[in-house]
Computed example of a mutant assay.
Amino acid sequence: MDAPVRILLHPSDETYFAMGKTLENFPTKEFAIDNSFKRPKELTFKFQRSNSSAFAKILVLAEKADEFNVSTIDGKEIFSAKWYYENICGCVDFALLLSRIRNKTLYIDGIPEDWKESMAFLPCLKDRMECYNPIRHCFGVAGNYLSIWGCEAIKLRWFGFENWFSWGTFDNPNVFRFDKARLAHELRRRAMKFRLCPYLNYTYIQEVVKHFPETVYVDRKKWNYRTCYNSRPEVLFVVLKDELGSRSFFTDGVFPKSWEIPAEIMAKAMGLSGKDELKLLWSSPDGTVSYT
């Protein structure tokens, strides 16, 4: 692990997010950096001439790289386009087109890397660049859902029917204990695929996991039972009685009903004093979230 450094949620974003502050002015914390998510210095794309209809456009975009050169090896032209990581957004259109041709190699800090694994972030970053409010894209708001992790591509969304709300066990019929070790493992595994995205902040994700509740009490106001439709050893059979009568069902986890829960978690992870300072406006009927 590297020495602790100061990191903002999205250092280059100009979008207003909380209390009229830009993200550059967010309160910061001391975080340790996971070396697997350490930013590279440069990306180099080497490719050969192709009969693809997109090749002419690829060549035009390649010439806009921070460094571009052409060499000849064994009678074949080898084109090389290098972007420094701080300018990575400038290579998105080029890399998306380059993915269509066969004879190409990606080098990250001089080391050849798998194209499919390393470039998985490109379509999502392209969508973000074209989004009216980019930060809403990262938090899933543009798609009318919420990703408290700040990365919608991770897909662990804040909806009760998401399977990850069943990751854990019931201590008793009213208390559910989340398996935070499994949650942290799955988040890291999924985030690794998008580690080159300049807006992925793994330290923020770690803070969200840290402030995520260990256990929740099923009071049917903030948390309710998550319904499942088959009996397994780890599920409970619940019988509820109220003014409407009684009903029974199987449950394997919990269902969040209050939007205050993710607001509090996110505020703590961002180093804010509370959910009110974050100023999130939630619309619970359809799950739409807006930020002010």
Rank of each mutant, 00 (worst) to 15 (best):
A267E: 07
F161S: 12
E243Q: 12
K126T: 00
S53N: 11
R49P: 09
S36V: 03
A32N: 11
F17Y: 13
S80E: 14
K193Y: 00
R220C: 11
S258N: 13
G143C: 06
A3C: 09
G168E: 08
L281M: 09
Y145F: 12
C89H: 05
N172I: 11
S52C: 05
Y107K: 06
L280M: 13
I101Y: 02
F121G: 01
R6E: 12
E130Q: 14
N103Y: 10
S147T: 02
K46L: 04
F255Y: 15
K210N: 15
V239Q: 08
K210L: 08
H137Y: 15
I88N: 03
S273Q: 14
R220A: 13
G245R: 01
G271K: 13
L240G: 08
T292C: 07
Q48H: 11
Y107T: 09
A269F: 04
L98M: 07
Y107I: 05
F55S: 09
E130K: 14
W282H: 09
T169I: 13
L106C: 09
P285Y: 11
K257Y: 12
N174D: 14
S147P: 03
G110T: 04
E162G: 07
E152R: 02
S147D: 07
F159D: 06
R128I: 00
R136P: 01
S246M: 09
I135P: 03
V208Y: 02
L97Q: 02
H185I: 03
S71C: 03
N163F: 02
N25L: 15
R195C: 00
S80K: 10
K193E: 00
S71N: 05
F37W: 01
R182S: 07
L97A: 06
P262S: 02
E67C: 08
F249I: 10
V208W: 02
W115L: 01
I108Q: 10
F26T: 09
K116N: 11
F176V: 15
E77N: 12
Y225T: 05
D171I: 15
I33E: 15
S50R: 07
F94Q: 04
V141D: 01
Y291C: 04
W158S: 01
A263Q: 09
A191I: 00
K193H: 00
G110H: 06
A32M: 12
S248W: 06
G110C: 04
F176M: 15
E130W: 07
I265P: 04
W167F: 08
G150M: 02
K21W: 13
F37D: 00
A263V: 04
V141P: 01
S273N: 13
A18L: 11
Q48L: 14
D127K: 01
K193A: 00
Y107A: 11
Y84Q: 11
R177I: 04
E30L: 10
L183K: 01
L236I: 09
F255M: 10
A153R: 00
E14M: 10
R102N: 15
L59D: 11
I33D: 02
V216S: 10
T215P: 03
T203E: 14
R188H: 01
L59H: 09
Y291F: 12
D109A: 05
S290H: 08
